[in-house]
Design a protein around this nucleic acid. Structure first.
Lengths: 204, 204
DNA sequence: CAATCAAACAAACGATCGTTTGATCATATG
DNA sequence: CATATGATCAAACGATCGTTTGTTTGATTG
């Protein structure tokens, strides 16, 4: 599969697939390199070690995902007429658009796994590299929901994150009715998620 | 630890701890039996294999958890004055009460992992043995939310499940202020989850 | 053409995996 | 007391793990 892509890209795509299916410890380098059609030693040659391959799988997707999220947030943050739905759209839409890319839907499953695993090493890596994104969104939520205490706001953001992560990890994997275009299906999903999240966040 | 308990119980508790920390494939029988203070061969002697140990970890907790959930649901299901909050309480409270039992909080993390892993074998096992519980709750939600289409209802239940699973997997692990009793903290958490879930479900 | 170097390769390293074996211990039964 | 039984034990099984090694390939460069 994808025999035209470079060895590094082939490894990253195979890693995304097998990490989604079997987890980071459950997917072996032998399965992984066989799936990618490359030599076993190629992983250590190109990435140094398995844990650095894991980090690279995250970096490849999260760099663009979070850049798009921040770009979308920048267009609405601080504006007087910005709604809660606008901010949620800036957070959700880039993630579901990622599913259009090759393997992007699989990556959301990998992300959901990491979210549920509570692995300290991985959490530290994600916090160090992408914590500022969540902080910016939290700040904007705080501006739009001044009636909520800090504790209450964190509670709700945590619950919304759980719901969205779970929903996004299932997006693109369920069988879609063939008479609905992918773009239309995505818009429907985005609308569902935004309505649900906005209801949960703004509840008095 | 717990050297008074039987070997089987010691193994189950250690499995719960290490499955929560490192996942099913990530936790080895050697770590596990060392943690439990029993011989390596004891797992295969008492459980037959590792996968049957995994199933037994689920069975031990889910049998009582789902029995309590169904008992709580039976008290309110079908009644004319039952509210959405009552049904959510019947679903959430038994799970958080489980955290009072030894290791119960850890089990919720194991459950969250299984939820995120999308592992077909495990999903089949859970569906076969405990699918009827979710079906009964879904039926009662449908009765209380007649304005929602079937598709819309499934969407929201899925989102609520994601939020609750995530929240419950974190419960009991965060540092609690020492001046708040565990019972009070649990009631606060239940109130948060019910309000959030009810808002998301009943949103027009 | 000869030298160079990144890339790919087969093969092996020691470590660890789940599982099985056969001996040993403790307790209960005839 | 002799024996049967369930539980625990150290030790080993073959398989697989992540990683390293030394060599070969193939295109680039002087």
């Amino acid at each position: 599969m994808n025999s035209s892509a470079s060895t590094k890209e082939r490894i990253l795509s195979a890693a995304e697939l097998l990490f989604a299916r079997h987890g980071f410890e459950g997917a072996s380098l032998r399965q992984l390199t066989a799936e990618a059609g490359v030599n076993l030693a190629a992983v250590n040659y190109h990435f140094g070690s398995k844990v650095r391959l894991v980090e690279e799988v995250f970096r490849r997707r999260l760099d663009t995902l979070n850049a798009r999220r921040l770009a979308a947030l920048a267009k609405v943050a601080g504006q007087p007429d910005t709604t809660l739905e606008d901010v949620l759209d800036a957070f959700i839409r880039p993630a579901l658009e990622l599913s259009g890319d090759n393997g992007g839907a699989l990556f959301m499953r990998v992300l959901a796994r990491a979210f549920a695993e509570h692995d300290d090493t991985l959490r530290q890596f994600l916090s160090d590299n992408y914590g500022h994104v969540m902080r910016q969104f939290t700040g904007e939520f705080a501006r739009l929901l001044p009636q909520l205490s800090k504790e209450e706001l964190y509670w709700r953001i945590d619950l919304v994150s759980g719901a969205l992560t779970h929903a996004m990890s299932g997006f693109g994997l369920i069988r879609r009715r063939s008479d609905v275009s992918e773009a239309a299906h995505r818009e429907q999903t985005i609308a569902h998620l935004i309505r649900f999240a906005a209801a949960g966040l703004s509840h008095p």
